[in-house]
Design a protein around this nucleic acid. Structure first.
Lengths: 301, 301
DNA sequence: GACATTCTCTGACCTTAGTCAGCAAAGTGC
DNA sequence: GCACTTTGCTGACTAAGGTCAGAGAATGTC
């Protein structure tokens, strides 16, 4: 990580907060204080529970209450008790509130347009592409990979998506209970470990490891949500799983996969995995890989 | 300007303000209020005049005065009258102030590092490159091209840099008073017009137009500061000059340039200028161009 | 039914950020 | 020497953003 990189990021920050940040906030403010505007926005067209707003914006209960009163006094929202739990209050936009939210929306669009306006068509495309890169790479940086019990709801959600995707992309039909399985007890300590990747608290990927006493460790059920692909997240997750296998005492890890998962195949090959003859009878697999787990040096987290 | 572009920018804003903006400001804040921290930073290692601080940060005189008092009370700065003008006060960092400024610096670096840390080396390079693109394109968007009198200090500065650069890059030696000149009265209404491009109030480029009653208009002294190149600014400036010639009644514009100005040659060619036989005896020129000024449609500003 | 917990609201309070009008000292132009 | 401008300081004021403690109602738990 060179000084030049750090310097570039700091310059970027300065320019962006000047041009985007300053605008985004104060611009959005319209006639209304920023806090109220953000709250109005966050309530959304379908309304929100007050406690949800509080946690999403990270604000004090008293403060939110006051902001809501002020919005209510301005005739922009209505507050009502929730049907299920009458302590919980739900904020809903009135017609005027919806109009104002739309205005905020348009302001935001205007801001975006004002950034593009002075540029030529080619420059616009370059700007948008670069912004997309920055956005995705920053997002990739916030993704957190945590050890989770394989029966935890988040793990189950990911596994479900994994199976669904395989069945969607393959003509063969995949049954996770047949062949080389990854049953909960097989990927739970001490037999193994299961990981879930989170972005903003949402599960967006998973993977498991099965330790074995004498034969190589197995990596199983590695999956990344479609909308999170192309971030290099797969590589990060795979490294985590290899680490786990290594820590479990394995010198070699194995993985098998279907031919339809082309991204996975490319990833394994580029990450130093070597294709080997089939080492199990997993009916769904078309490719089998092995990797010698060398001692890692100076790993990035 | 498509909706997809606008949408991408808004997503970018959200991610960046969350990850960079929020951090940059509040992170920088340390234990000190943001205003004081920014001021402390801006004073710099060599000290600054108070009036300069005020204009750079765009703050009220009274407010700055109060902030400085607070920093002085904390033992971070010393205030003294300027030697030349005893109304003007100069703020200088004490040893403690320098320490604190260094700490702010390190915080900023830390933030930058924390963005890079989770990424692989390749991803880091992509992130930094994309940030550089975004930064440059945003900067390009804020550049303002104004009509300025050719004897104005900013115009003179640009012209001086232009001449200096030609003499630096060419072996021939360039004398602006010989050959096809651009004397002040020739590029000032009604005979012509002169433009200066500004970034943050600093002149970073220029160009002039000489109108003629019967022969084509001439574009003269077009220059972009080296640090502002590669932004597509040249194209914007050139379009402005063409517009000016067109508004002045010309159907055709001419421009001559030296072979050493390779960027300029490439720009003219790609902007629809056609190389023609020499139309004057400018001793410094190697290439002569003409362009038919069509009526413009839906121009970007 | 007693008790704890959850959720919202209220009043009191604080800091930060910033504006405005006016003043005094110093410098500038004639 | 006089009028005017620049520069910085001060006091009074405002708005926004936010924290904290506690009250009161609804709900959950034993």
């Amino acid at each position: 990580m060179s000084d030049a990189m750090v310097e570039q990021i700091r310059r970027f920050n300065r320019v962006v907060t000047e041009r985007v940040g300053a605008l985004d906030d104060r611009f959005l403010g319209l006639e209304r204080p920023l806090g109220e505007a953000r709250l109005l926005w966050e309530i959304g067209l379908d309304g929100s529970e007050v406690r949800v707003l509080r946690s999403r914006l990270g604000l004090d209960s008293g403060y939110v209450s006051r902001l809501l009163r002020s919005l209510q006094a301005a005739g922009l929202i209505k507050l009502a008790a929730s049907g299920r739990d009458r302590r919980v209050r739900v904020a809903r936009l009135t017609a005027a509130g919806r109009r104002e939210r739309l205005a905020l929306d348009q302001r935001s669009d205007e801001l975006a347009r004002s950034l593009l306006a002075p540029l030529s068509q080619r420059q616009r495309q370059r700007l948008v592409a670069a912004m997309r890169d920055v956005e995705r790479l920053l997002l990739c940086g916030i993704v957190e990979i945590r050890v989770v019990d394989p029966e935890h709801a988040d793990a189950q959600y990911c596994l479900g998506e994994y199976v669904a995707e395989l069945n969607r992309r393959s003509t063969r039909g995949f049954d996770p209970s047949v062949g080389a399985t990854a049953l909960p007890h097989e990927v739970r300590p001490p037999a193994g470990q299961f990981f879930v990747a989170y972005l903003h608290g949402e599960p967006i990927g998973c993977g498991g490891v099965k330790h074995h006493a004498d034969t190589p460790s197995e990596i199983k059920r590695m999956w990344i949500a479609p909308q999170a692909r192309g971030l290099g997240l797969g590589r990060r997750l795979l490294e985590k799983l290899e680490d786990c296998a290594r820590t479990g005492g394995a010198r070699v890890a194995r993985i098998e996969t279907s031919a339809v998962l082309t991204e996975a195949l490319a990833l394994y090959r580029s990450a130093g995995w070597v294709e080997v003859p089939p080492f199990n009878e997993e009916p769904f697999a078309d490719h089998w890989f092995e990797k010698v787990l060398s001692i890692r040096t100076a790993a990035a987290t």
